[in-house]
């Protein structure tokens, strides 16, 4: 019979070793992805440009309607909620500041990232996972084609470009939503609202938002690909990994958001 101490250490070991292995796998994937995306093009192994374009269309262009709708609604909601407090102190015009700053600094990037996690992150996991289950990934390796370069890098390029682009779009539509509500229900003069927004927004607000969006793009791609490559069995596991990829990428997006927001708060 093993002693209590042995049992305790056994328990810690059984829990810790798989976690270490996961960290190792994830680190290796990140390393490979960045190698094939940023270093190997200088060594003559070009990025798959056409595949990247088609990923951009799938991840970016096709998300435009949903990003637009959600951003418009969130802009309106934000204007309404802030008006609820601001009208008591007679400072309704500051709705413009609140909407402008919170959308560009925070809500634009994070809403876009959450939508893209749900749409593209899960699609990445499902695509790579079902390819893994059907031996297609093995087939790529056996043809001497690196699956990270072939599958992950085009997705990474697509999200690194499209997430900031969608965020700019989301910023504009969100501010427009606040504007629509303010000039109608709140009876603020359109020109005043416009001027107030311009005065409130700094270039750095928009830039920090875009930097976050870029980082979120990287996080979503890596999480989706990681979960996809983890698939060993069949269709059931593909479904499980797809769900896991959405949960994990939304979680990590928020963790990174906290990190960047803190960083920007103190250093910009």
């Amino acid at each position: 019979m093993p002693s209590t101490t042995e049992n305790l250490f056994g328990l810690i070991g059984r829990r810790a070793i798989p976690i270490l292995k996961d960290i190792n796998d994830a680190a290796r994937l990140i390393n490979n992805t960045f190698y094939w995306a940023f270093l190997s093009p200088f060594k003559g192994k070009a990025i798959r440009f056409r595949a990247s374009m088609s990923e951009m269309v799938k991840a970016g262009y096709s998300s435009v309607p949903i990003v637009a709708t959600i951003s418009l609604f969130v802009g309106i909601i934000l204007a309404l909620q802030s008006a609820y407090q601001l009208k008591r102190v007679g400072a309704l015009i500051y709705v413009a500041n609140l909407v402008g700053v919170s959308i560009t600094r925070e809500l634009g990037p994070i809403l876009t990232a959450i939508i893209v996690s749900g749409r593209s992150g899960s699609a990445f996991a499902a695509e790579i996972g079902s390819m893994k289950a059907a031996e297609e990934v093995d087939a790529l390796i056996s043809m001497g084609i690196n699956p990270v370069r072939f599958l992950v890098v085009p997705k990474l390029i697509a999200l690194m470009v499209m997430l900031p682009a969608l965020t700019v779009f989301s910023d504009l539509i969100g501010i427009f939503g606040g504007f629509l509500l303010s000039i109608t229900a709140l009876e603020i003069h359109p020109y005043n609202y416009f001027q107030q927004t311009i005065r409130a927004l700094l270039i750095k607000d928009i830039l920090t938002g875009l930097m976050k969006a870029w980082a979120f793009g990287v996080v979503i791609t890596i999480v989706g690909a990681y979960q996809g490559f983890k698939v060993e069995g069949g269709a059931e596991e593909v479904g499980m990994r797809t769900t896991a990829s959405v949960v994990a990428s939304i979680f990590l997006v928020i963790v990174f958001d906290l990190f960047f927001t803190t960083l920007f708060y103190y250093f910009t």
């Binding site: 059907a134 297609e136 087939a139 790529l140 390796i141 056996s142 001497g144």
Partner: peptide
């Protein structure tokens, strides 16, 4: 990869890219 270029593999389910 150089070795693999000189070998071909037919997988059980053919493993064509869908």
């Amino acid at each position: 990869d150089e070795v693999r270029k000189r070998m071909g593999v037919l997988f059980q389910g053919a493993a064509l890219l869908n």
